[in-house]
Each structure stands twice: as structure tokens, then as C-alpha cells.
Design a protein around this nucleic acid. Structure first.
Lengths: 221, 221
DNA sequence: TAGATTGTTAATCGATTAACAATC
DNA sequence: TAGATTGTTAATCGATTAACAATC
């Protein structure tokens, strides 16, 4: 006999493709209202502008809990709120960044994160020339202090922008100190214990898609 | 009656997930041989280290044309070559970068691209203080010269690291001048004519996956 | 009302995973 | 040989797309 899981433990898993599309709608809708005030918008309209299918937009919005009215569409402001709520972007989460090279510095200076509820509060590096300085207005601390600081501040998100070589070791350090999610920009796949979240941001993967598609395109005579 | 497409026109479309995984194997194998010389490796071993399934690794490698020997595995050097070949990373493609803010500068300085056959030869910006200067050793030119330069140099890849507002207009300019593929780091979806490739690199999308997963994890009591 | 649009159930499609024969 | 591993065909799973009733 099948033993059904108790209802409380059934965590609805949201498909990753949906999660990735929600911010696209979000950015689109924000731009729409900014350009000129629009109260309602239909999935048809959204799908035309974003070059997708209306049914997909509808399905995606359904997941956020946004409700539309037949013939009228969705209230733009409500959809924006629904997405923010759904993704947890309405309250800020603090994060630490490890590695202040080119990419790390860029991430430190990226103003957009605050729109998405992310606040990088400090950066860590191993280079003595950088420790104690400020980059883009954020303090750079010694990576030796990382575990203690994670514990003390109860930080849950670590952004890893280190080179490939030390990446795994730094990840281990973070996890041991209590980090629950790692946003990994290092060009290697890192391993973490079960229950810890890793989001890999591999430029090489994206470039692979681009370069293969381009090669096939140019090969068509 | 069904009219089958002539064989020459059947372009085998490679699934995007496969293309995204190939660089992960590539980085892993490069690291393996760098750490200590290994001649052969099995899918079982790869899958254990990368925390995936052996069958998936085997299927992915099959697409690159790499061939293994039962009981022995694949020649590491051959797999590396096969991936490089398959993705076109064995010969260099030149690219222009548009937008030299934090992220654009970071991309200009990223040494890893040359491993993936990408060479950013120049950068473009609209800010008078930047034009004529060098950033990370690359010349910054006026964005007004972009169309002419694309045509003159026959550049096919444009990397867009501009703010949201001018992104679409810059994309149009690039496409008109002959760019065939745009790697878009701007936080908006851009529209391009059919036959032009766009690879969207939306940090918000990745962050959405991370923050939702983390929220669900922390919500589990 | 007529018809555009939502919400929902069903069908399709494609990627992942399983099964197993071939082989070194 | 025995058994690990590849290569290949089949089954499963999940996301996308289609169909259609409900509704404003």
C-alpha cells in the first residue's frame, strides 16, 4: 500500500524554468509602468512583447497567485507585487561576497541587487593589499574571519567569486560556518552536503550555448 | 503525404541542457589532468565527482563524438579535445563589448574567455570620460563608431553590458551592422529578428532560483 | 450581447532515466 | 573468464502546448 506523505510535508516544488522566467516578467512590467501608467495588462500582450506564448505566461503567473479578470487581464501593480512576494524579494536578505577580483568587484557595485532583496554587506579576500580597504563602498575583510563573521551575523547566503582553485575549499568553509545557499561564480562545479543550495553561474555554459548556436547558424551555407 | 526534409537541411539541434553541461565536464577534466596525469576516466567516476548520473554523462559525451572503451572508459585528452571541437572552442572568435560599467569592465578583464575561444578585441561606451582610454588593456571607443567597426572588422558576436534603458536600441544597432549573436547581460529581455541569436544572462533569473529555494528550505520548520 | 481573456483539464513533446546487449 | 563499462533501444517523467469551458 502506498503511504501518502502528510499534507504538511508536501512542499510544492516550483519548476526552475518558471522561476527563471518570473524575473523577466517582473523587469518587463516594471519598465511598462515606468514608461507610462498602465493599469491592466493581458497575457496576450505580455507574450507578444516578450516573444513567448500567452498560455505560458498565464501558467507562470498562476503559480505566483496573481489573479486576472477575463477580458480585462491582470492588474499590473498586483502582478509585480505577486512576483516580489513569491520570490521573497519584498524583504532584504544579507549576503557575504568572497573574492574581490574583477567579477567580485562588479558584483559588489551592482546596484540592481537591492531591487531583488539582496544586500551584500561585506566582502572577503585573502590578498593583504585588499584587506581593510573598501571596494565600491563595501569593507573588505580577511577571509580568515569569514567563518566567525558568518556565525556572528547569521548570514545565510554566500556569493563565491573566487578563482577555480580555492573555490571548493571556500565553499566548505562557508557551509561549515552555517551558510545555506551559495551563489557560485567560480568556473568549477562545487560539491556541497545535501540540504545546501548551490546556484552555479557558469559563464562557460552560457557561452557554449551561444557559440554552438552561432557555429550552426554560420554553417548553414 | 508527409514531405520529408532533405537530409542536408536537417540540422541536428543540440538540447540546451547538454550544451550547458559540456563545459562543466570540460572544466572538471582539465582540473583532473592538471592535478595529476590520468589517461582514462569512466562515466561512473565523472558522475560521482560531479554528482550526476553516469548515463547522463555517457549520453552527453556521445553527442560530442567522443568514444570510450568498455571496461576502460574514455581517454581524458580525447574527451577534452572532443568538447573543444564540438563547441568550436579550438579556434578564436572575436567579439565587441558594449558598456564599460562594473560588469562590462569585469568581462573585459576576464582571462578565462580565451580558454573558450572568445577574444574581446575592443569595448564601446557613450561616456566621454571613458572614450579613448583603456580598460584592462582594451581600447574603449565611442559607441557612435560601433556600426562602422562591426562592418569593417566583420565582427559576429556582440557582448551587451549596458543598462536596461539603452539595451534594445544598442541591440538594434548591432544587428543592423551585421552582428549575428548577442550575449546580453543587460537586465531586460531584448528582441531581435529571426535568425539572430541572443543568449540572455539575467542575474535576476538565477537569483530568483536561489532565493526561492532558500525560502522554501528555511520554511521547512 | 459578442468576444477577448482567464482558468483548468488534457495532449504533446522532449529530456532524463532505465534496461540490456555488446565488448574489452 | 568475469565483470565493469560502453553504446543503444525503450520507458518514464516533467514541462510545454493545446483545447475548451467559464466569465467579465
Amino acid at each position: 500500500m502506498v503511504n501518502p506523505r502528510p499534507a504538511e510535508l508536501v512542499v510544492k516544488v516550483i519548476p526552475e524554468p518558471v522561476l527563471r522566467r518570473l524575473p523577466v516578467y517582473y523587469q518587463y512590467l516594471k519598465k511598462i509602468v515606468q514608461d507610462r501608467p498602465v493599469e491592466y495588462i493581458s497575457c496576450t500582450r505580455i507574450s507578444e512583447d516578450l516573444n513567448t506564448l500567452a498560455i505560458q505566461v498565464r501558467k507562470d503567473l498562476e503559480i505566483t497567485g496573481a489573479e486576472g479578470r477575463p477580458k480585462v487581464g491582470y492588474k499590473v501593480a498586483e502582478v509585480i507585487k505577486a512576483i516580489e512576494n513569491f520570490l521573497g524579494w519584498n524583504n532584504t536578505t544579507e549576503a557575504y561576497l568572497v573574492g574581490t577580483g574583477n567579477l567580485g568587484s562588479a558584483l559588489l557595485g551592482y546596484q540592481g541587487f537591492k531591487d531583488y532583496g539582496l544586500n551584500i554587506v561585506a566582502a572577503f579576500d585573502s590578498s593583504p593589499e585588499k584587506i581593510g580597504k573598501e571596494i565600491r563602498g563595501k569593507k573588505v575583510l580577511s577571509v580568515k574571519k569569514l567563518p566567525e563573521m558568518i556565525k556572528r551575523m547569521g548570514i545565510k547566503i554566500g556569493i563565491l567569486a573566487a578563482p577555480a582553485a580555492p573555490a571548493q575549499e571556500l565553499a566548505n568553509m562557508m557551509v561549515e560556518a552555517g551558510i545555506k545557499a551559495i551563489w557560485n561564480f567560480a568556473p568549477v562545479k562545487i560539491s556541497v552536503p545535501e540540504g545546501i543550495i548551490v546556484q552555479h553561474e557558469n559563464l562557460a555554459s552560457s557561452l557554449a550555448v551561444l557559440s554552438k548556436r552561432l557555429a550552426l547558424l554560420l554553417a548553414e551555407r
